[in-house]
Amino acid sequence: MKRFLLFLPLVLFIVLGFFLYKGLFLNPQAMPSALEGQPVPEFKLMTVSDSQRVVTKADLKGDVYLLNVWGTWCGGCRVEHPYLLDLAKSDLPIYGINFKDELPAAQQWLKDLKDPYKFTVYDVDGRLALDLGVFGAPETFVVDHNGIIRLRYAGILDSIAWKTTIEPLVRTIKEEARLGKLQ
């Protein structure tokens, strides 16, 4: 027993070392969003394509939809754009949030690269993005039929991210929505 007690510090050191070693290989940018499980924040902003049109949270419709944060200043968004166009061809609605951008540049972007969004909110001072806990672009939120944010995906949305994380969740939410309607 006494022998064992003497080895306790070594054992503790090894356990601690193991966790610290594992910590070296974690991605520090991968952070859970504080907003997962929370409703989409309220907003009242104009759209990029039509500055007369004012949209609110109530205009975001769909059993499940994506909220995509982008800006013309963001290189990753340009990479991501073709994939969003592909996704838009399916029945999944995508809404854009244009984040800290210039209106003419954003309009030109949608004209040149085509528009995958139902509409894009023009969030010039980043208030909505701040309420969403956005800290960069591109970022994509998956929102369910109750308007609850189910997932935040930070980074470029591509076919790998879609197949591994987003599509399974979208399917689950669709199923939940279907069951909810039956009740």
Partner: peptide, 8 residues
């Protein structure tokens, strides 16, 4: 701030 960005 924590509501939006977590305890981080």
């Amino acid at each position: 701030m924590m509501m939006r960005y977590g305890s981080f």
